[in-house]
């Protein structure tokens, strides 16, 4: 057990929050060992899948057989994942589950029209998030479910709706992650999955158009206006700030409380056409609020990638984008000056 682990246990014991000796924890493998085992696990699973698909080629062409074949694969994956911690077999199980998902995806695509197959696949991913007892699987399933819903709405011309929609549950789950202790693994999978979804969807929004995807067979009879996505973005930003202010040690009657909402309003208006910046800052704030370094890193990554991708966005000219960014920069400088002027704090590194 590490020294810091022991220290925390002693502190909890002193406050009578725990009793007895600290539990002995199995040391987790470092990231490079996990990566090496993941690569080898996936390679092994790939050969197994190639054997299965080469042995029964005519069956794979039949959607019904694909669907039926996926069930034992899901069960096998679930069985392996419920066994005690094993980095190597964890990835074999993931590969088997992904192969099963591929079979279901193929079967659904052959059977149904585009809109229904995406939604059904998203529902399957939702079920897998609840059932599969593995963090990586939950993250992946959350990401795929978000992408499916986004692809469905993409043809309606408002995929940015999904990213703002995702921010709301992300904020709630992140700030209540320890409330349901037994469900912590599920909640953390959802948190990281939703964060990655926001990151990918913001980038995809810049680069992908419905014509480029080419998977749609039917024409949509109705569409969502861009102002609907902007309205959702405003709601998401104010909700995020409101929930964050509930965990910040700030009195509700304090003048700073109202000022924060005013600043949020102005910033949200400035970033209406660059929503990735606002959502990246939300992720960063959530990570800081929970001392979650992974979420802070994802927030920084989301901001950096979005700023790079924003260059390629075709909805406005570079001159307009430059003006939007300049306005955000000036506003941020003013806010910082006001903060330092009216609330000077000790500058500790």
């Amino acid at each position: 057990m590490s020294a810091s682990h022991h220290t925390l246990w002693q502190q909890l014991k002193a406050q009578h929050l725990v009793q007895g000796e600290a539990p002995i924890l199995e040391a987790t493998s470092p990231w490079f060992v996990k990566s090496m085992l993941a690569f080898v696990g996936w390679l092994g699973a790939l050969f197994i899948m190639l054997f299965v698909f080469s042995a029964f080629p005519s069956l794979i062409d039949n959607p019904k057989i694909c669907f039926i074949l996926s069930v034992p694969l899901f069960l096998l994956s679930y069985f392996i994942l419920t066994k005690p911690n094993n980095d190597f077999f964890e990835h074999v199980a993931l590969a088997i589950s992904f192969a099963a998902q591929g079979l279901v995806l193929f079967a659904l695509y052959e059977w149904l029209s585009n809109s229904t197959f995406l939604i059904l696949f998203a529902i399957l991913q939702g079920v897998l998030v609840l059932l599969m007892p593995n963090l990586l699987h939950r993250i992946f399933s959350t990401l795929v479910a978000s992408l499916c819903v986004s692809f469905y709405l993409l043809d309606l011309g408002a995929s940015q709706v999904v990213t703002s929609m995702l921010a709301i549950p992300l904020v709630w789950l992140c700030l209540n992650e320890f409330r349901y202790q037994s469900k912590y693994s599920l909640i953390s999978g959802l948190v990281y999955g939703l964060s990655l979804s926001i990151l990918f969807l913001q980038l995809a929004d810049v680069f992908v158009s419905s014509q480029a995807l080419g998977i749609y067979k039917d024409v949509r009879p109705w569409s969502i206006s861009p102002w609907d996505s902007r309205l959702l973005y405003v709601i998401a930003m104010f909700y995020s700030v409101w929930k964050l202010l509930q965990v910040v040690p700030l009195n509700q009657h304090d003048k700073w409380f109202r000022l924060v909402f005013a600043v949020t309003g102005i910033f949200t208006l400035l970033s209406l056409n660059a929503q990735g910046i606002g959502l990246g800052i939300v992720m960063l704030m959530l990570g800081f609020a929970r001392s979650n370094r992974i979420l802070i890193t994802l927030g920084i990554l989301a901001l950096m990638l979005y700023c790079s991708a924003y260059y390629y966005q075709m909805q406005e000219t570079l001159l307009v984008k430059s003006a939007i960014l300049m306005a955000i920069a000036i506003f941020a400088f003013i806010c910082r000056w006001l903060l330092n002027h009216f609330a000077p704090a000790s500058r500790e590194r």
């Binding site: 960063l284 001159l319 430059s322 941020a332 400088f333 704090a345």
Partner: peptide
């Protein structure tokens, strides 16, 4: 985090957002 840590964090974030936005604005 406590109130002082939040203030320092917001201060830092505002500075970085301002610098990155300004740099990108100039590049664009």
């Amino acid at each position: 985090p406590n109130k002082e840590q939040w203030q320092q964090f917001v201060n830092t974030v505002l500075l970085w957002i301002a610098c990155i936005s300004l740099s990108c604005a100039i590049v664009f």
